[in-house]
């Protein structure tokens, strides 16, 4: 896969991405308190750069692993790509549809039936209603929940909820699939099915961005690995080239990098 990488266009182009957060030094949740403090001039903030000048390209069909310690900026990077956050500086270009598999069963309501929840969940991803109606049978079939689909989801097990969520989220092949840890959805048989679907996507040209703390998973799935540290990209390269030094850095004391 990596050999063809240079020829294929980048589906995600991150250039000089920086994201700034403003962190209040003290949490003020009450309006009254805010007004009082404002009057006494006791409001203070500090800036926090979650990402600082990140450059990264992801090409079509490529699987890129993202590693870093907690708070290194991995989630923020995912949010920038899935357009939840706007970069404070820099530019992100995404060519194609992203499917974040972070929020399986988003918006599910326990009092509604499986069918009603499929419509809610899929419209949250921006699908038109007519398309959902058309694809509903296929989603239900994949989730293996046809007997339960008109039952309120409060009667579903966690595994069943995840299966339905996965079926909706992956009904359409995305151009970029964002995975936060490899999904453990349902029983072993269903997990196989999920992995097979992700593999299908990959073969059909979907790029995958995989965040994981499990370095073996990263090593076995990814063509390239990007290492984030304090919001900056430390290294990008083959799993062999990046994971070894990363592992060492993580094992050594915190201030090593």
């Amino acid at each position: 896969m990596t050999t063809a990488a240079d020829a294929t266009p980048a589906v995600v182009e991150l250039s000089g991405i920086s994201v700034r957060f403003v962190v209040p030094t003290e949490r003020i949740v009450s309006f009254k308190e805010y007004v009082l403090r404002r009057l006494r001039n006791q409001i203070s903030h500090r800036e926090l750069w979650a990402l600082r000048g990140v450059d990264l390209d992801i090409r079509a069909g490529e699987t890129v692993g993202l590693v870093g310690r907690n708070g290194a900026g991995k989630s923020t990077l995912l949010k920038v790509i899935s357009r939840v956050l706007r970069p404070t500086e820099g530019r992100v270009v995404v060519r194609g549809r992203t499917a974040p598999l972070l929020e399986l069963g988003a918006g599910f309501h326990f009092d509604l039936t499986g069918r009603e929840n499929v419509f809610l969940n899929a419209t949250l991803f921006g699908y038109p209603k007519s398309l959902i109606a058309e694809q509903l049978p296929a989603m239900v079939e994949f989730s293996e929940l046809s007997e339960f689909i008109d039952m309120p989801v409060r009667n579903y097990s966690n595994g069943m909820l995840a299966r339905l969520g996965f079926a909706v989220a992956t009904q359409f092949r995305p151009d970029i699939l964002i995975l936060d840890e490899i999904l453990a959805v349902g029983d072993a048989g269903f997990q196989q099915k999920c992995l097979a679907r992700v593999e299908d996507f990959r073969r059909a040209g979907t790029s995958i961005l995989l965040v994981s703390h499990d370095l073996e998973t990263i090593a076995s799935y990814c063509d390239r690995v990007a290492w984030l540290e304090h919001g900056k990209l430390v290294a990008v390269g083959t799993p062999e080239a990046v994971l070894e030094p990363f592992h060492e850095a993580v094992m050594s004391p915190r201030d090593a990098v």
Partner: peptide, 26 residues
């Protein structure tokens, strides 16, 4: 692609959802 053992029904119709490739440019 064919994934024989786990899938009971061989034809999962999965359409391509793209009238055109949506481009997001910040």
């Amino acid at each position: 692609a064919p994934k024989a053992p786990v899938e009971k029904i061989p034809v999962p119709k999965r359409p391509v959802l793209r009238p055109a490739v949506p481009i997001y440019d910040s």
